[in-house]
């Protein structure tokens, strides 16, 4: 399956083979990653999944990158449709969380290569179509 450059990079992140670059990703790439992150989060968790369970995933994903735990947890909860305080989270933190937590979620879901390709392709299609798959905020605070 042929992916966009952003999709190919995401694939490499999951395989832990992504090169470290100093380049700032463009908004299109960030959009693909954000959507893929949301799709994976909603495949892995229910909207009312225990925060302890979400926290374990987040901690495992971002611990080595020294990213803020609570911000990462909030981004997952936002992707699940919760109304949470996410204003002002730096773009660099958002991007890193989207990439690293996506990789962790793919691992926890034990996605096959085909499933992973399909999920990334879905994110690329949604990004290209300008569609936000984000859940509407639920009654869950």
């Amino acid at each position: 399956m042929t992916h966009t450059e952003a999709g190919r990079y995401l694939r490499l992140v999951v395989a832990e083979e992504a090169p470290r670059t100093g380049d700032t990703p463009d908004s299109g790439a960030r959009r693909v990653w954000e959507i893929a992150f949301g799709l994976a989060a909603r495949r892995r968790f229910e909207t009312d999944s225990p925060l302890a369970e979400i926290g374990r995933t987040v901690t495992a994903a971002v611990r080595s990158a020294a990213l803020p735990l609570l911000e990462a947890e909030m981004l997952v909860r936002e992707a699940l449709g919760e109304q949470v305080p996410v204003d002002g989270i730096a773009e660099s933190v958002r991007t890193a969380v989207h990439l690293l937590v996506f990789a962790r979620l793919a691992d926890e879901l034990a996605l096959t290569d085909d499933e992973l390709d399909s999920l990334i392709a879905q994110a690329e299609e949604l990004a290209a179509a300008g569609i936000s798959p984000r859940s509407e905020p639920t009654g869950v605070p």
């Binding site: 909030m74 109304q83 305080p85 996410v86 204003d87 605070p141």
Partner: peptide
């Protein structure tokens, strides 16, 4: 449920007319 804390913080900051959607709220929950 720890989500009750999120709701409480939002209610508190709204009551105090403080911004409830960003870093201050996250720090309060933390």
């Amino acid at each position: 449920d720890p989500r009750d804390i999120t709701a409480y913080v939002r209610d508190l900051l709204d009551y105090q007319s403080l911004p409830a959607g960003g870093e201050f709220a996250r720090q309060a929950e933390a």
